[in-house]
């Protein structure tokens, strides 16, 4: 479970996150939506321990990201919107590196690397250096590196940007499988149709303040998510 408790983050005078609180239960796909600059990436980076925050706390499976960041990070995987990978490494070396960092044993990495590389159709490219890859292929490598250690929580910032339709379909399938296993998938997106079809819960953020959160059904009622979002953003 993830609990965001009264999180506030300031950049100088600008308030990026203003007293944000919500909860994500195990087995939920949670969409985080908002305009550009609303604070989505700031909250995501705070959750995964990239940014600190000024007030409040984030509890990951009962542990505080402030007090025990290493334990929290072991349970999580993060995929950035623009994956910055070590370009001079071979894709397989990069994935191996991430596995080493998460103490993934040989059996698990053998099983998962083959499984996901085959799924994303980049098995033939794993021996190439990352600088020869397109944006979409880099995103696929980042996804494999995130999934290979079987995280309990998958956090993604705009995960569908740059992916081909087949990969988008596969990512959605993986998300659903993870949720069936009682894991959490939390992601930000601008593609409201996908969020509407895929997610059980949603949070809408505007100028750093959470303006709506709850189950997808409760939030949108009979309307489309797009209509609700545009009305709220006003």
């Amino acid at each position: 479970m993830i609990e965001i408790k009264n999180v506030t983050k300031k950049y100088g005078e600008t308030i990026a996150l203003n007293d944000v609180s919500f909860k994500i239960n195990d087995g939920e796909i949670f969409a985080f939506i908002g305009h550009n600059g609303a604070g989505k990436t700031t909250l995501i980076k705070s959750m995964v321990g990239i940014h600190d925050f000024d007030m409040g706390d984030i509890i990951i499976n009962g542990k505080s990201i402030k007090d025990d960041p290493i334990a929290c990070k072991k349970d999580m995987a993060f995929v950035a919107d623009n994956p910055e990978l070590y370009e001079n490494m071979k894709a397989i070396d990069f994935i191996n590196f991430i596995c080493d960092m998460y103490d993934v044993n040989e059996d698990m990495r053998n099983k998962n690397i083959h499984k996901y590389a085959k799924l994303f159709e980049i098995e033939d490219n794993l021996n190439d250096t990352i600088d020869s890859f397109s944006h979409g292929m880099k995103q696929k490598v980042a996804l494999i590196a995130a999934l290979v250690h079987e995280p309990k929580i998958l956090v993604m910032d705009e995960p569908f940007v740059g992916l081909d339709p087949k990969a988008v379909f596969d990512v959605k399938k993986i998300m659903n499988e993870m949720v069936k296993e009682g894991k959490i998938v939390f992601f930000s997106t601008h593609i409201l149709d996908v969020a509407e079809k895929l997610c059980s819960k949603v949070a809408i953020i505007k100028e750093g303040k959470l303006i709506k959160t709850g189950s997808m059904k409760d939030i949108k009622g009979d309307k489309s998510l797009e209509k609700v979002f545009l009305d709220l953003e006003g």
Binding site: Y86, N88, M89, K90, I92, D93, N96, F97, C99, D100, M101, D103, V104, N105, E106, R109, N110, I113, E123, D124, L126, N127, D128, S132
Partner: peptide, 25 residues
């Protein structure tokens, strides 16, 4: 791109060794 070699090696390293390898690369 060297398209000939499609075989990749999966191997386990300690955190320190993996990190130092990455830094040397």
């Amino acid at each position: 791109i060297d398209n000939k070699n499609k075989n990749y090696i999966i191997k386990t390293n300690s955190k320190a060794k993996a990190f130092i390898k990455k830094e040397l690369n």
